[in-house]
């Protein structure tokens, strides 16, 4: 509990800066309105107005909080205006993509650690794949898959997987190579097969590395899904919510969708962290 004070201080500073920025950035519109009406506005009137505009340049924190409350608790989850509904659409694609990406990443890492040709032949492509901006490649994947009659969840998941396989692969390659020469020699003195060395030594050794990269991977999956929801003309999902908000100048909607996405990402990373703790404790590797 000793940490609560610094945490609250930081939070307070952020909120204060945010309010100040909101006043400053929304003020021109208030002055313009007043000028058009031919009236003078006092500073307190400016403050009151800038924090309550319908389409502010920067919505105030309480406006975003209000919107979040209205679109989660106050709406039925089946409603198209419910963030829970949109969040679920995004989450399901994220989870499927994360599952695909993690599986692909682990398989790739196993291939790379056991086959030199694969390391030299596949690794450069895996690296290259991550240097292409996802924003550029996402529409193409969606268009191509759409022409093949695949739409909805799958294309988004594939883009999520595209972003999440890489950290998992890199982490697992490192993890599977974590056993030192002595531990590998020990397996050789038992004439252990490659499969036995993998299951009994390499895989357990890689667990801490796997979880570290899963945390990166799950967040990347969410980013991938949201990006995939932007260009698809989708009407569902947090990405679609962001896009429609920007179409109609609904800044409050954009910000609340952003916060929903951030909260979702944080929860996912925390869940992976909890699973990590439980697993490593079961394995006897965490005190």
């Amino acid at each position: 509990m000793k940490n609560i004070l610094p945490i609250l201080t930081v939070l307070l500073v952020i909120v204060a800066v945010w309010y100040a920025a909101a006043i400053k950035m929304n003020a021109p519109w208030t002055y313009a309105q007043a000028e058009r009406a031919g009236t003078e506005v006092t500073f307190s009137e400016v403050v009151r107005d800038t924090l309550a505009q319908e389409r502010p340049v920067l919505p105030a924190p309480h406006q975003v909080a209000q919107e979040l409350w209205d679109t989660t608790v106050m709406k039925k989850v089946t409603s198209k205006r419910s963030l829970v509904f949109h969040g679920w659409v995004t989450l399901s694609a994220t989870m499927l993509g994360f599952a695909i990406g993690t599986t692909a990443g682990i398989l790739l890492a196993i291939g790379i650690t056991h086959n030199r040709a694969m390391e030299l032949g596949v690794m450069p492509w895996a690296i290259a794949s991550q240097t292409i901006p996802i924003l550029a490649i996402a529409p193409m994947i969606i268009v191509v898959l759409n022409s093949m009659g695949i739409s909805g969840l799958i294309p988004k998941s594939i883009i999520a997987a595209y972003l999440s396989f890489f950290p998992v692969a890199v982490g697992m390659v490192k993890g599977l190579r974590a056993p030192d020469a002595m531990q590998l020699d020990l397996m050789r003195t038992y004439s252990a097969s490659d499969a036995q060395t993998f299951w009994k030594l390499r895989l357990p050794s890689s667990m801490p590395y796997l979880f570290a990269s899963l945390k990166v991977g799950v967040a990347a999956s969410l980013v991938g899904t949201i990006v995939a929801e932007l260009p698809s003309g989708a009407t569902r999902g947090l990405g679609a919510r962001l896009l429609s908000g920007s179409y109609y100048g609904q800044t409050i909607q954009i910000w609340s969708a952003l916060f929903a996405a951030a909260l979702l990402a944080a929860s996912l990373v925390i869940i992976v962290g909890v699973i990590e703790k439980i697993t490593l404790r079961r394995m006897g590797m965490a005190v």
């Binding site: 002595m182 020990l186 003195t189 030594l201 667990m207 006897g284």
Partner: peptide, 21 residues
């Protein structure tokens, strides 16, 4: 001889697996 399990080898470090009792 190794395949016939002729020897046991003890290394400089114990090298016990931390995830095993």
């Amino acid at each position: 001889a190794r395949k016939a399990r002729s020897y046991g080898y003890v290394f400089q470090a114990a090298g016990l697996y931390p995830w095993r009792t």
